[in-house]
């Protein structure tokens, strides 16, 4: 018995040491830019960009294989910040020209179709879905980032992504479009 315990402990200790040494010996230096990009990304690992989590996207972006606009839940704001890091000195707006100032989106659950399977509940990266087994689930609009993760796992296709409903807090007047005004190009030369 004692021999068994001793041998197992020795094995564990030895292998642990080996791992520790290997970690030091074969340490790969990650470029600090990856950490920086990772810090700006939402960190929800939602997978909407198609890369394995935010870290994966950060690596791809540092390599230059992913565009700064890849993070859709982050939107224009995150993309602008990323453009500054990835391409300092470059014109942030140029990289973003293909990215419209998109309306924020959120998930919505059709209650008639929800079976209360808890699949989306487990998948949501921001805990924005509430519900219990065999109980209709619902989305907390303020916490949802509209990442699509729940839509993919729903077995009854009860979840759709739709534009975030406007509230009095997020409503604002349209920009007036005067015939003449500030834009110099509108003046006759």
């Amino acid at each position: 018995m004692i021999e068994a315990a001793a041998s197992m402990s020795a094995l564990g200790l030895g292998l642990g040491l080996l791992l520790g040494v290997a970690a030091r010996r074969f340490h790969v230096e990650t470029p600090p830019i990856i950490d920086e990009i990772d810090g700006i990304l939402p960190g929800t690992n939602c997978g909407a960009c198609g890369y394995p989590g935010c870290r994966g996207l950060a690596e791809a972006m540092a390599e230059g294989t992913a565009p700064v606009t890849a993070c859709t839940p982050g939107g224009r704001d995150v993309a602008l910040q990323l453009a500054e890091i990835v391409d300092p000195g470059g014109d942030g707006d140029a990289a973003l020209s293909d990215m419209a100032d998109e309306e924020p989106h959120v998930a919505f659950i059709f209650e008639d179709h929800c079976t209360g399977c808890m699949k989306c509940f487990k998948r949501c990266p921001t805990d924005a879905i509430i519900g219990a087994n065999k109980q209709i689930h619902t989305v907390i609009v303020d916490a949802c980032i509209g990442c699509d993760a729940c839509v993919e796992v729903c077995p009854t296709e009860a979840i759709v992504i739709r534009a975030k409903p406007r509230t009095l807090k997020s409503w604002y007047w349209e920009k007036p479009q005067p015939k003449f005004g500030a834009g110099a190009e509108e003046y006759p030369a």
Binding site: P42, G43, T44, N45, P73, G74, G75, D77, V78, P125, T126, D127, A128, D142, A143, I145
Partner: peptide
């Protein structure tokens, strides 16, 4: 809200 999402994810 983005900051909140980050906090929730963490």
């Amino acid at each position: 809200q983005q900051e909140e999402a980050k906090r929730l994810a963490a």
